[in-house]
């Protein structure tokens, strides 16, 4: 496994059991759209799931086998792993409403 960035922002401060939003973002090196997606995702999480999310970042250029085994051909691709169902969205994630809708997060996002 290559380097994997994991951020657990604020989850250890949780006072009561709450839903953790797990995301995995596939990026392609330093491609501008990948960087943009990462920025957009971070901002979105900060705004909506401030202390209850995890983001795993996979760089397909560093881990090409992951792209192959996970079937990720378009980058950037965001996968919402939890809560179920697993959802996927491709692109820079620039339109927040579309992203929330696609990930079925409209109801849970404040």
């Amino acid at each position: 496994m290559g380097p994997m960035q994991q951020s657990r922002i604020g989850s250890e401060f949780a006072m009561r059991p709450k839903v953790i939003f797990k995301f995995r973002l596939y990026i392609a090196g330093d491609a501008p759209n990948s960087a943009q997606a990462l920025a957009n995702l971070t901002a979105l999480c900060r705004a909506h799931f401030a202390d209850r999310h995890e983001i795993e970042i996979v760089d397909v250029f560093r881990e090409p086998k992951r792209a192959l085994t996970d079937g990720i051909f378009m980058t950037p691709t965001l996968v919402k792993l939890a809560p179920s169902p697993v959802q996927m969205i491709v692109g820079t994630l620039s339109q927040t409403q579309i992203v929330l809708h696609a990930l079925r997060l409209e109801s849970v996002a404040p």
């Binding site: 957009n40 397909v60 192959l68 491709v90 696609a102």
Partner: peptide
Amino acid sequence: MDIQPMPDLVQSGDFDFGGMLAALEAK
């Protein structure tokens, strides 16, 4: 290699085929 885009694929903004090239590289 099956790369059929899912019919319900949602996209928001620009993207590329970096994933495909990476996968091809590996393969």
